[in-house]
Amino acid sequence: MARFHVYRLKQSETLVIDLQAGLFDALKTRIVAPLIPAPDIDHVMAGLNPRVTINGEAYVVAIHLMAAISVSELGALIGDLSHQRDKIVAATDFAFQGF
């Protein structure tokens, strides 16, 4: 598991981004946020919901929907958003700190 990697959930077509620090890889859970296709979401808060591109498709990172899930729910590795690290970390900070 690697922070900022994107996975498809095994039981659905949902994509999620791993937000959890690698320091906690021994845990059997990961903190993730779903990626919602940009055309499917009407209202986003730019600071809370960064836009990203995976395989040429636009998505919104739904930080406000983050949750802990079992590692066993993660399916195929789809991509790596490490290059968007600053934007994603700023969004998680905004969710918890409000700034």
Rank of each mutant, 00 (worst) to 15 (best):
3 R>H: 09
4 F>N: 08
5 H>V: 07
6 V>E: 00
7 Y>C: 04
11 Q>K: 14
11 Q>L: 08
12 S>F: 09
15 L>N: 00
16 V>F: 12
16 V>K: 01
17 I>G: 02
17 I>C: 03
17 I>T: 02
18 D>Q: 05
18 D>T: 06
20 Q>W: 02
20 Q>L: 05
21 A>Y: 08
23 L>E: 02
23 L>K: 15
24 F>M: 14
24 F>L: 15
25 D>F: 12
25 D>I: 12
26 A>P: 03
26 A>K: 15
27 L>W: 13
27 L>H: 14
27 L>N: 11
28 K>T: 09
29 T>Y: 13
33 A>C: 12
40 D>E: 03
42 D>H: 14
42 D>F: 06
43 H>F: 14
44 V>T: 12
45 M>F: 11
45 M>W: 15
49 N>E: 12
49 N>I: 01
50 P>Q: 09
53 T>L: 02
54 I>F: 08
56 G>W: 15
56 G>A: 10
58 A>Y: 06
58 A>M: 05
59 Y>A: 03
60 V>C: 06
60 V>D: 03
61 V>C: 09
62 A>D: 01
64 H>C: 08
64 H>A: 04
65 L>W: 10
65 L>G: 07
66 M>C: 13
66 M>K: 05
67 A>K: 13
71 V>C: 09
71 V>G: 04
72 S>I: 11
73 E>S: 14
73 E>Y: 15
76 A>V: 10
77 L>R: 14
78 I>N: 00
79 G>K: 08
79 G>H: 05
82 S>E: 14
82 S>V: 00
83 H>K: 13
83 H>G: 13
84 Q>D: 06
85 R>I: 01
86 D>N: 08
87 K>V: 00
88 I>M: 02
89 V>L: 10
90 A>I: 03
91 A>C: 02
91 A>T: 02
91 A>I: 00
92 T>Q: 06
93 D>L: 04
94 F>P: 02
94 F>V: 08
95 A>P: 09
96 F>S: 10
97 Q>G: 10
97 Q>M: 10
99 F>G: 11
99 F>W: 13
99 F>C: 07
